[in-house]
């Protein structure tokens, strides 16, 4: 160990093609949606399949062991509703 380089700040005007992970790298993608997933808490068993398959990471685990949707970013693909074995998520048109 200790054989890594010294990270030293550039001493001239410097912009490198660098990024850091952050939400919203193309904005609030909730605006892309044409229909939104709605969770029926009574039907949700907290199996977490929707959470597992969600391509966007916009299924939030709630304190009561169920799920909620992050509508700011959810693109409305409907994968969650399609994989739910209990029909606990409906896609509701927004247009």
């Amino acid at each position: 160990m200790g054989k890594g380089p010294i990270l030293q700040a550039p001493e001239t005007f410097f912009i490198a093609p660098l990024s850091r992970p952050a939400p919203g790298s193309v904005g609030k993608t909730g605006s892309w949606r044409t229909s939104k997933p709605v969770v029926y808490e009574d039907k949700c068993t907290g199996c977490m399949l929707c959470w597992l398959y969600c391509p966007e990471n916009t299924i939030l685990k709630t304190s009561n062991g169920k799920v909620a949707i992050d509508y700011d970013y959810c693109k409305g693909c409907g994968v969650c509703a399609a994989v739910c074995p209990f029909e606990a998520i409906d896609m509701v048109s927004e247009v």
Binding site: P5, I6, L18, S19, R20, P21
Partner: peptide, 21 residues
């Protein structure tokens, strides 16, 4: 001197190099 560079791509740095700007 030992190697100097402006950044590294590593788990510690969490930098991403080269995505669209």
């Amino acid at each position: 001197p030992p190697r100097r560079q402006p950044y590294v791509i590593s788990p510690e740095s969490n930098y991403v190099m080269g995505n669209i700007a």
